[in-house]
Design a protein around this nucleic acid. Structure first.
Length: 963
DNA sequence: TTTCTCACG
DNA sequence: GACGTACGTGAGAAAC
């Protein structure tokens, strides 16, 4: 904060003079800083950057004299020397123009003189005042990064780059021009400058110019001795363009004797008027800056009514609650009108516009700009794609197409282990997160991400509950689910025609792959900022389409509220009894070894039982068992169905033993062994990842590990569920929908008889059997009921005679007769199927009860088999998809519902029609009742279903017992 | 990298 | 009369 007391009185001798290049700052800030507008639409990004820079400067400097110098008119004495000087310079962008005046105002608000003079550039005024200051015995600091000012550097005059926050001395000048500061003009005269339209000598750049000047001493000597130069082209160029070089020198050489009318003595530091300053900050709504002024000067000032909410230090969170608690604010943020989508495609991708944020001031600017904008793209870079193992490495943000930044936080010294290079300059992690937290948690600022669930998890481990959020991946999924994938690279190529830098391009692949913290900052910036940029553009393109295409409700009521719920589930994870898995692995291994021994003995040959190819050859060639069909690849089919058939028809013991071996092998490798490795050492639990945009129907999928296919159907497999346990004092609660898809079929195909049966709670499979086969329900043969059950399932799958015959092991003709009988009894089902297929053919998609679209590319395929396949998928998708919508609605509501009821249960897993919870023992009954209620009421209020939905509960110490 | 097989709903 | 099948997933091991 600026110190109030001036060091000396006017007229006293200056010790240290600060000359701030105001004009140069505007141009540089415009490209490097986030775009920011005042509520009235005035662009103020550069103004805020300047304000904060000046404040910091005044706070930290020991200067006793200070002034900000500006350019006056565009034409000046240099145009008399060379008419085209700066002739190529385009008009400043319109957003820049109002900021010139505002920066003057800002300067005055700090009670610092703003100097400009007709006919002279700021650089000449700076040169003149620097000369005067040195003559008066003072040190001079020029605040600018303009290379044209570097000629002024000497042991009394140095520069300071306010954008990069670093001093520029003789060493930096040498780095840039290859010569000492006093020779800079000579180099510039030779090399020229295309931006300022300084001609220079053709064919000579900075490198060659420096070499020549260092050899000959100065420009005049060089031009005089130009004939000595060996390279013919260079020699001729120098001789012919000697005049141009001299003119160029006059152009770049700064005038040090401008007849200035404000004396240096007037630059003496004056007292800060806080009222004036706060008034200015308030007018421009620089909230964070106001907060900083106030926190430094107390709250006794005029602006104290302005909201001031500095972020609290992050709490350490072990049980993150990611659920938003301010629905009103969320709505406000998400209904924020999306700006025109045109820019998203028309603005070119330019990595040069991405800013590397390495100091807190720049970060403050981005935070401020994001708060003003009301929405911001946020993307995290980490050391691992698995959230639970990932450490935060950096954060990127984007505010407008082409305007993005990357904030490195956890970058190391580089890939080479032997290279003990120093760490790059970064804002300390805790400082950056403390600065970002109020933004990320601000209910009025929408945080946009691509698969933002991932970033939510990362931030939650840092104690930051990001809300509200939007997800471009999910928006795309809602718009075009089933039509294509929804990864960022794919969406970028599809919608933006731009192929982003691949992750593997910056990290490498395979053995040489490095983690992101080892990626050099320039590469990290180009990659990470581009990701944020792409995400922002996708959001601008896709978000408005939700409303236009009547899919906003699906997104808002199903997908978006699910994000925090799923993130929470993944973070919590499920407890696994590792010793139990260990025991099972050992048990399975022993029994497999025994089976292997028996199989080899019975077959009389040693072979790899796990190899389908070898197994087929052993069974059908070596043992000459009957049958043996080769598939398209020429290998014998050895699937479970084939082996079962073989076991009964041939009577040979090997097929059965192979089946047993296979089961154990599967259970061991896929479950008992693999799950142990998935236990997170930090939490002692297994954290799956639920994919929200992976399936064509709207279902979730689970991976790494897949916890949606844990065995249950066989007794051996069921043992694995015993290893899924609850924490001490807790129980596992499983609640699943009973026959939800069949109920939905009755509802959506509108079959009154089936609806009635569900309302009465009748045995639906027995009813089907009695209706189709004309058999009374009383005393029904279980086999008959089993066939009816298979038919009912077949309906859901888009029944075919072949499929049903396979399932039941009956001739295809018989299956066909069953289907005919079923359709005759329930003609509505056939009509529904035909209707659905027609709709799919006409629109290319089908819809669920809640309006979700499931695209069916290939529904009109010329290949009849593929077409039939898509038709069956089209019949299944509305049923499977509606069931998915319903359980998603329940899941989105449950965390809040449990919270409001004061229950501590945590949702752990979703398995399509089942939810698994970990519940304190004392709350089991209340939780079960609540969950059941929420699940059964999930369609409301959007849909009223005439068939009752029933959710059944089960409780136990492990998942096997709970089911 | 693709295919086969099999675990779940 | 083709075509080759039940719908939707993910993972491990073998084969390519």
């Amino acid at each position: 904060m600026p110190q109030a007391a001036p060091a000396i009185a006017p007229g006293e001798k200056p010790q240290h003079v600060y000359l701030v290049d105001g004009s140069g700052y505007i141009f540089r800030a415009f490209h490097a800083l986030p775009p920011l507008t005042r509520p009235d639409g005035t662009p103020v990004g550069a103004v805020l950057g300047f304000t904060n820079m000046l404040m910091k400067l005044l706070d930290e400097t020991d200067a006793d004299h200070i002034a900000v110098i500006f350019d006056a008119a565009r034409r000046n004495f240099r145009n008399e020397i060379y008419a085209d000087y700066k002739g190529h310079r385009p008009e400043p962008p319109p957003e820049l123009i109002p900021q010139f005046g505002l920066i003057h105002e800002a300067t005055r608000a700090f009670n610092v003189p703003a100097i400009q003079m007709e006919g002279f550039e700021a650089d000449d005024l700076i040169a003149t005042y620097a000369e005067q200051a040195v003559a008066a015995g003072a040190d001079v600091t020029i605040v600018s990064s303009d290379k044209d000012l570097m000629q002024l550097v000497n042991d009394k005059v140095r520069m300071f780059d306010p954008m990069k926050n670093r001093p520029i001395g003789a060493a930096e000048v040498m780095e840039k021009f290859g010569v000492t500061p006093d020779k800079v003009v000579d180099v510039q005269a030779l090399a020229g400058d295309s931006i300022d339209n300084v001609p220079g000598v053709p064919g000579i750049g900075v490198k060659t110019a420096a070499e020549l000047i260092n050899t000959y001493g100065d420009l005049d000597t060089l031009l005089a001795k130009a004939g000595e130069i060996k390279q013919p082209k260079r020699r001729d160029n120098l001789i012919q363009n000697a005049d141009k070089a001299r003119i160029s020198r006059d152009l770049v050489c700064l005038k040090r004797d401008v007849p200035v009318d404000v004396p240096l003595a007037d630059f003496v530091r004056r007292k800060l008027d806080l009222t004036v300053l706060l008034d200015f900050l308030k007018t421009n709504e620089f909230r964070t800056t106001i907060n900083r002024v106030q926190s430094r000067h107390g709250k006794s000032l005029a602006a104290q009514n302005l909201e001031a909410a500095p972020g609290k230090a992050p709490d350490v969170v072990t049980s993150p609650n990611l659920v938003t608690t301010n629905p009103a604010a969320v709505t406000a943020a998400t209904t924020f009108a999306a700006p025109a989508a045109v820019d998203a495609v028309s603005v070119p991708f330019d990595p040069a516009n991405y800013q590397l944020v390495q100091d807190i001031e720049s970060l403050q600017l981005w935070v401020e700009a994001a708060m003003q904008a009301g929405q911001v793209v946020v993307d995290t870079e980490t050391t691992s794609l698995q959230t639970q193992r990932a450490d935060l490495v950096g954060i990127s943000m984007a505010l407008e197409p082409g305007r993005a930044c990357y904030i490195p936080l956890g970058h190391g010294s580089g890939g080479d282990l032997l290279d003990a290079g120093e760490k790059p300059q970064q804002i300390p992690m805790d400082v950056a997160l403390k600065t970002l937290k109020p933004l990320l948690e601000d209910p009025a600022v929408l945080k946009i991400g691509q698969n933002i669930k991932y970033d939510l998890c990362i931030f939650s481990t840092q104690g930051i509950k990001v809300a509200p959020v939007d997800d471009t991946m999910l928006i795309s999924y809602v718009l075009e689910g089933g039509a294509h994938g929804h990864g960022m690279d794919e969406l970028s190529e599809l919608h933006l025609g731009h192929k982003p830098i691949a992750y593997s391009e910056v990290t490498g692949t395979g053995k040489a792959q490095i983690t992101f913290d080892k990626v050099p900052l320039d590469k990290a910036l180009a990659y990470a900022a581009e990701d944020a940029d792409v995400t922002l553009r996708l959001h601008r393109l896709l978000k408005p389409r939700l409303l236009q295409e009547h899919l906003l409700t699906v997104y808002e009521s199903i997908e978006r509220p699910l994000i925090p719920a799923i993130a929470q589930m993944e973070c919590v994870g499920v407890k696994i009894d590792a010793p139990e898995l260990q025991r099972l692995s050992a048990d399975f291994a022993g029994r497999m070894a025994e089976l292997e021994r028996e199989i080899r003995e019975l077959a009389g040959i040693d072979f790899n039982i796990g190899s389908p190819k070898q197994l087929g050859e052993v069974l059908f060639d070596h043992l000459k068992l009957p049958g043996g069909k080769k598939g398209k690849t020429g290998a014998y089919a050895t699937g479970a169905d084939v082996l079962e058939e073989l076991a009964t028809t041939s009577g040979h013991p090997v097929p059965k033993k192979v089946l047993d071996w296979r089961q154990l092998s599967k259970l061991k490798s896929t479950y008992t062994d693999a799950l142990q490795n998935e236990i997170n050492p930090k939490t002692g639990r297994v954290h799956t990842s639920f994919a929200l945009a992976a399936t064509t129907t709207g279902r979730l999928s689970s991976s790494e590990p897949n916890l949606q296919n844990i065995p249950i159907r066989t007794e051996e497999g069921r043992k694995i569920r015993r290893a899924f346990i609850a924490e001490k004092g807790m129980k596992l609660l499983s609640v699943d929908y009973s026959q939800i898809e069949l109920r939905l079929a009755a509802e959506m195909a509108d079959i009154p008889a089936l609806q009635e049966a569900f309302r009465k709670g009748e045995d639906i499979h027995a009813l089907t059997a009695s209706q189709v086969f004309g058999i009374p329900i009383e005393g029904m043969d279980p086999m008959v009921r089993r066939r009816a059950k298979a038919i009912n399932f077949g309906i859901i799958y888009g029944i075919s005679a072949f499929g049903l015959s396979q399932q039941l092991g009956i001739p295809q003709g018989e299956a066909k007769a069953y289907i005919e009988a079923y359709f005759k009894r329930y003609p509505g089902i056939r009509e529904y199927m035909e209707r659905t297929k027609d709709f799919a053919r006409k629109h290319g998609y089908v819809t669920t009860l809640f309006g979700r679209r499931c695209y069916m590319p290939g529904i009109a395929d010329k290949n009849p088999a593929r077409r039939a396949f898509m038709e069956r998928a089209a019949i299944n998708a509305p049923l499977q998809g509606t069931a998915a919508d319903i359980i998603k609605r329940a899941m989105a509501r449950l965390p809040d519902a449990l919270d409001r009821a004061g229950l501590k249960a945590r949702m752990l897993l979703q398995v399509h029609d089942e939810l698994l919870f970990e519940v304190p023992e004392a709350e089991v009954e209340a939780t079960a009742a609540l969950v059941k209620q929420v699940m059964e009421d999930a369609p409301k209020p959007a849909r009223e279903i005439s068939v009752p939905l029933i959710a059944e509960t089960g409780v136990g110490n492990n998942w096997a017992e709970a089911h």
